[in-house]
Amino acid sequence: MDTKTVHLKIKRQRRPDEASYWEEFEIPYRPNMNVIIALQDIQKNPVTRQGQKTTPVVWDCNCLEEVCGACSMIINGQVRQACSTLIDKLHQPIVLAPMTKFPVIRDLLVDRSRMFESLKKIKGWIPIDGTYDLGPGPRMAESERRKAYEFSRCMTCGCCLEVCPQVNPLSEFMGPAALGQVRLFNAHPTGQMNKAERWEAIMGPDGIANCSNDQNCVKACPKNIPLTEAIAELNRDLTFYGILGLLRR
């Protein structure tokens, strides 16, 4: 009989305004387990390692195949998606904690609405005339499409904000994800017609100037989005745009 178990240590918090605390759990091991399965076990039978009854741990998840971006959390000190993190590859006890750059709602569940607000701010869309039939869109070289596709896979998961030292309580920095989206829309044949608006949107106190080029974002991104490349490109663009602006004055 297999008596192997999985030992977890989870940072918990009942409400946003309450202090956090730790609880430990031990659950039966099965092959091919991921962190979600472990949390589901606790949900079904919330008893601590010490045998105390407790409330189920609350966390965020949805697709369970790393495409929705919901289940980001800090696992053994590293921010990542819980669904694609396999238990077999982790040291025990497995330590789970909520991301630190977003307000905690409860336990591992955080509020990432600031990221969606940033997408509003940078005008992250193609301003089409309407949804009626206006014929095909612009042609695009497959090589350009492939590059753009890398950026269009951003799932707003928040990992890049979590690891960015410039995203902190003293700064308003919108973080790398939104900048990657500026790169995406400004390269699109229609989107580039409004690129100046998006440039303006990232020139403020919450904008690109905050980036200190630590390059953590690109390492933490679960989709390997070349975020630092985007930031470098945008910096170049903005330099020219700034010079042109001075000339126009």
């Binding site: 095909p136 869109g137 497959e142 499409r145 829309f185 229609t190």
Partner: peptide, 22 residues
Amino acid sequence: PGIIDLLDRMGVMFNRTPEGLI
């Protein structure tokens, strides 16, 4: 066909042919 055109105009990164068509 009209729906594909619309999505294309919205900026969906559909795979392309060598000619740049969908």
